[in-house]
């Protein structure tokens, strides 16, 4: 395992994701989001939105390409066999719409030990094509033993 204290603060290459209308619909169907603004462009414009709206937790979809390389970074050194996803937080700002390009940047926020557990905390910041923040995510993984 690498010297973990030095990896705190490390940032990763931004990941760009183009939001497709049908991807939003697929996601909304999987999680049971039935509001028509997530499915139908006419419903979305009728409700005053510029396009089909991504449900809040769609954040997972556009940020995964940024967070996965951070979690697999050998400098971080997580042992996936002993790891569970312990906690998750998202804070939302501007809405995300079909047609947006979302750029997400991940970083290592904190690594700490408590009892026999190691807590790995990552942050993602996602902005849209206008440079406006849409989501900030905090991802906590817990590794047992070690």
């Amino acid at each position: 395992m690498a010297e973990q204290s030095t990896v705190v603060g490390k940032g990763y290459e931004p990941f760009e994701y183009e939001v497709g209308r049908e991807k939003i619909r697929e996601y909304a169907n999987a999680v049971g989001e039935e509001n028509p603004v997530h499915h139908d462009p006419h419903a979305a414009s009728g409700a005053g939105f510029r396009a089909v709206v991504a449900p809040p937790m769609f954040a997972v979809v556009y940020s995964s390409g940024a967070i996965v390389p951070a979690m697999f970074d050998p400098d971080v050194g997580m042992n996936f066999a002993m790891m569970v996803h312990g906690g998750q937080e998202f804070a939302w700002s501007d809405l995300v719409y079909a047609g947006d390009t979302i750029t997400t940047t991940a970083s290592v926020l904190d690594i700490s030990k408590r009892d026999d557990k190691t807590f790995y905390v990552f942050e993602t910041v996602s902005v849209n094509q206008d440079g406006r923040e849409v989501t900030r995510g905090t991802w906590t993984n817990i590794e047992r033993g070690g």
Binding site: H38, V53, G86, Q88
Partner: peptide, 18 residues
């Protein structure tokens, strides 16, 4: 979101433990 009336803008932050 449903409790807030269904507008997707109503959820500002959500933190959970699994």
């Amino acid at each position: 979101t449903a409790a807030a009336g269904g507008d997707p803008r109503s959820l500002r932050r959500l933190a959970v433990q699994f």
